[in-house]
Simulated scan of single mutants.
Amino acid sequence: MDDLGIDFVDAVPWFAHEHDHPYVLIRVTPENLALLAARIGEPLRRCYITDAELNAAAQRHNLPRAEVCASRMPDAGSTMSGDFGEVLGYFYQATQALPIEAIGPKKWRLKQDRTKPAPKSDVVHFIMPNHPEPSDQDAILCSEVKAKATRGDTTPIEGAITDCKKDRTSRLGSTLVWLRERAMTTDLGDVDIPMLNRFINAVDHLPMVKRFRAVAVICNSLLENELLAAPAAADPEFTLVVIAVPDLKGTYTAAFEAAHASA
């Protein structure tokens, strides 16, 4: 369990694979969606602001917790949809690392503008079985996430694949340096500067693995048409993951309402 308050063992059933080749396909069932919806409010809010930070800000400025919370979270629209897709990608990536705990920064806390997506690589996790000591079992996980909740011209599968290549060629490296700079003045939770140094200065440490995913979170009603863009063959450099969610717009809207209510 990380500081979101989720035991990711419990979240594993949310992401049952329908098939794994040439890409991973996950259809979230109505039953599992109900489980997710019942749990997601408080963890989603913590993606943007910790309990301690929320309480301290409310007390310092004599403001309602709900007002402080609202100052950090996105308004309804494309940013909210994209953020929800990224959070779902964060949950999925954490479940895939089990039984080892994946340690990841909550980049949504680092936004300069709540109305815009967080910068750099979407979802990053660090695997260090012997943490804080490095080992040859260490790995870094990186996912590029695109979401599509309503009809339109966006192509989430193609977009995720294209931007995943950016992570592989340069963006992940710049993300790690950016996180290290933020860690100097901002509490990133379990992600600290020694951990970031281990992955930034990889040549100075034992070998480690990089694993990349292109993740498309798609409303179930749009899935069949969007799957036409899925490649016919797997790519050795990354894994494509397609997550179909019933009524994605209604789901993320309700999730953020629950997040606000949790304040």
Rank of each mutant, 00 (worst) to 15 (best):
E226Q: 08
A233E: 14
R27P: 04
H61K: 08
N197G: 06
W178G: 11
G77K: 15
T251W: 06
L248R: 01
G5P: 07
K249C: 14
H61M: 11
T253M: 13
E158A: 14
V241P: 00
D190N: 07
M195P: 03
P22T: 07
V245Y: 00
T29K: 00
C142K: 01
R182T: 00
L25S: 05
R109N: 05
L227R: 05
N130E: 12
Q137I: 09
A37L: 15
K165Y: 11
L36R: 04
D3Y: 13
P99N: 06
K111E: 06
F15A: 00
P194H: 02
N220I: 03
R45Q: 08
A230F: 10
M128V: 03
A70N: 07
D187N: 14
D3E: 15
T154H: 07
A149H: 02
E158K: 06
W178Q: 10
V24R: 00
N220K: 14
P207E: 04
D192G: 05
W108I: 09
K107D: 05
R60G: 07
E86Q: 11
F256K: 05
P134I: 04
S78G: 13
G250K: 08
H17F: 06
R60I: 05
G104S: 03
A233S: 13
S143P: 00
F8M: 10
N62G: 05
I40H: 02
H125A: 01
Y92R: 01
G77E: 15
M73H: 11
A255I: 11
N62S: 09
P129N: 07
T253I: 14
H125V: 00
T162N: 12
Q59D: 06
R182N: 06
R46K: 09
T253D: 14
L222D: 05
F8R: 00
A234G: 10
A183G: 02
L223P: 04
F84S: 02
R45N: 02
Q59E: 06
D3P: 12
E226L: 01
C69R: 08
T169S: 13
M73V: 15
K111A: 14
Q59W: 06
G152P: 01
Q96A: 01
E101W: 00
V203P: 05
A37R: 15
P236S: 08
A57M: 12
P156H: 00
M208N: 08
A230Q: 10
H61N: 08
A263S: 15
A255E: 12
L141F: 08
R168H: 09
V209Q: 12
D190K: 05
R39I: 13
E86R: 04
S78I: 05
K120Q: 14
A66P: 03
Q112H: 10
A255P: 09
K146S: 13
D3M: 14
A70T: 11
I161W: 04
A97Q: 06
I127K: 00
A263W: 07
L176A: 06
I103S: 03
D20C: 02
F199S: 02
V245H: 04
C142N: 07
T175E: 01
T239A: 04
M128Q: 11
F8S: 02
R109I: 11
